[in-house]
């Protein structure tokens, strides 16, 4: 049905196009999204079992180390979200297709959600590990910087009906923001900070029973990230078409009486 909305929006007469739109059907999620949701819920149950029953309590930090199994996959989810925002923004600048703009918005929002999870769970872990909630460690600082760049993107995009210039500026901002990702990733290797390096080359690794929870966490957050981005991009596409129809209908004086 989303295709019929797309096709109808492409035609110029507002009346004929809008008459083909069935809101309830247009917003109905495709079967793939429903299956992905079920798979995510199942994986979440497996993940909770692995974290709280299978994985042992850590020797030095105790139970608070279990934050790690959501914190690290969230960072991975953030890379996926911000990566998608930058990629889709690049495609938008190259092709000027609103489809890519919708994916850029979705990527930036979902990446920011994961970034927020990192910035909330990390300090709670840090209180136990470092004795303080926050320290200006290179990885923490660069992650905060990425969050601020994409927060600026979301603020820019939330100014009502965004014009072409704002969309292009926002696309530039998303591409600029992604340059911070390799800096975040390699900061713990390049600069000696306090952030753990457990799963990098320099680290001593995990206890063997901790790996399943971490790997399922990566799979779960990848699935949830893709699911959220897909659904958000669908809603954004629908919103773009509704706005286009609204403008067209207003030009024809159809909205004056409503």
């Amino acid at each position: 049905m989303a295709n019929s909305v797309q096709a109808s929006a492409a035609r110029s007469p507002a009346a004929s196009s809008a008459q083909q739109v069935e809101p309830a059907a247009a917003s109905r999620a495709p079967a793939a999204i429903r299956w992905l949701t079920i798979a995510s819920a199942a994986l979440l149950l497996v993940e909770l079992y692995l974290i709280f029953i299978h994985a042992p309590v850590e020797q030095q930090m105790g139970i608070v180390q279990k934050i790690f199994y959501f914190h690290v996959p969230s960072a991975y989810g953030m890379y996926i979200g911000f990566g998608m925002a930058a990629l889709a923004s690049g495609m938008y600048l190259a092709k000027r297709d609103d489809k890519w703009d919708a994916w850029a918005v979705a990527g930036a929002e979902v990446g920011s959600i994961f970034c927020l999870i990192i910035l909330v769970t990390g300090p709670l872990w840090g209180r136990k590990a470092w004795g303080t909630y926050w320290t200006w460690d290179p990885r923490l600082t660069t992650t905060l910087l990425a969050g601020m760049v994409y927060f600026a993107y979301i603020v820019l995009r939330s100014f009502g009906s965004t014009g072409e210039v704002e969309k292009r500026f926002a696309a530039g901002l998303a591409i600029f923001g992604v340059l911070d990702m390799p800096i975040i990733h390699y900061s713990v290797q390049r600069w000696r900070g306090t952030h753990p390096t457990v799963i990098t080359g320099k680290g001593g690794g995990l206890h063997p029973d901790m790996y399943p929870a971490l790997f399922v966490g990566f799979a779960l957050f990848t699935l949830v990230g893709v699911l959220l981005m897909w659904q958000r991009a669908r809603v954004e596409r629908l919103r773009q078409r509704t706005l286009a129809l609204e403008i067209e209908a207003a030009e024809r004086g159809l909205l004056e009486e409503s």
């Binding site: 309590v57 020797q59 180390q65 952030h195 995990l206 206890h207 029973d209």
Partner: peptide, 17 residues
Amino acid sequence: TTASGTADDRAASFQAV
């Protein structure tokens, strides 16, 4: 107060209790 062990120990590996 922080977790036990040295900062380097905590930063480089997670071991079971």
